[in-house]
């Protein structure tokens, strides 16, 4: 469980970081390391160079405006979770983040890192998609903004190019009158979810995002669906699979239960 040899650079500016990436096709960004380091240690990944972005200035902020919350690439899950203003403007952030791993991992792991790591079992990619957020990306050709719906192209695969760095993620504020809810079931406290569900109910529109169901972060529109049909309507657009912790049939059951639960929570005052 020791990584294969790699070079390590810790650039002090975004330009240097981008240069280090573009000069080396085997280079990889290192942020909080909570996903990447285990992959290195198990030799499931063997990048030639780690470009550590923790020395880049100005990326660790959580900025809150009436429009939404902008999370810098070096803001840790714990920073976002603890941010009262962020929670006020977009309550789903705190609801979801409290299910991300454990405190020690949240202290290092970055929310942006989680989003670009594109794990369908992670909470924040689904949250970003459900809320219609976006990611700001810097690359050799300049900066661009990638809407969440264009971010996820395959299992553990984002549409970022190898030589791009995500500088921040933007989560839109909750619209007046809109409501959100989050629920998940994991085998143990803090584990990746067997199934997680996040609901956004805005007027008549009902949308639910699912964690650990499809192989990419997936959001389903359930507008107009009768309460008792919510789960099956969601399942019609989902494809739960077996793994060593749960069968597809059990996951489907959890989709039914959790869909009903989050939609109820986001529509009624109980």
């Amino acid at each position: 469980m020791k990584p294969a040899p790699f070079d390590y650079v810790r650039p002090g500016s975004l330009d240097d970081a981008l240069a280090a990436l573009s000069g080396d096709p085997g280079a990889k960004v290192l942020a909080g390391g909570q996903s990447l380091v285990p992959l290195l240690s198990m030799r499931l990944a063997a990048p030639s160079t780690l470009v550590d972005i923790n020395g880049l200035p100005g990326l660790d902020s959580v900025e809150v405006t009436d429009d939404g919350v902008r999370v810098g690439a070096l803001a840790r899950h714990a920073d976002v979770l603890a941010h009262d203003e962020a929670a006020r403007v977009q309550p789903l952030l705190r609801l979801a983040l409290s299910h991300v791993a454990h405190a020690t991992i949240r202290n290092r792991g970055t929310t942006v890192g989680s989003i670009v790591h594109a794990d369908a079992a992670a909470e924040m990619p689904v949250v970003l998609r459900l809320l219609g957020g976006s990611v700001d990306v810097a690359g050799p050709g300049g900066a661009r903004t990638v809407p969440a719906d264009e971010l996820y192209v395959g299992p553990l695969e984002s549409s970022l190019a190898h030589d791009e760095i995500a500088t921040s993620a933007f989560f839109p504020a909750l619209a007046p009158g809109a409501r959100v809810a989050f629920a998940e079931i994991a085998r143990r406290h803090g584990d990746y979810a067997l199934v997680g569900a996040a609901a956004l109910v805005d007027g008549d529109t009902v949308r639910v995002g699912f964690v650990s169901v499809n192989d990419v972060p997936t959001v389903v529109d359930l507008t107009g669906v009768a309460t008792e049909d919510l789960g099956d309507a969601a399942l019609a657009q989902l494809d739960p699979t077996d793994d060593i912790h749960a069968t597809a049939a059990y996951r489907a059951q959890l989709v039914r239960v959790l869909t009903a639960r989050v939609v109820r929570e986001a529509t009624t005052d109980e």
């Binding site: 079931i185 067997l194 912790h245 749960a246 059990y250 059951q253």
Partner: peptide, 11 residues
């Protein structure tokens, strides 16, 4: 026994 197992046992 896991929840998934119990679910299938019930079925």
């Amino acid at each position: 026994i896991s929840p998934s197992d119990l679910f299938h046992l019930r079925l």
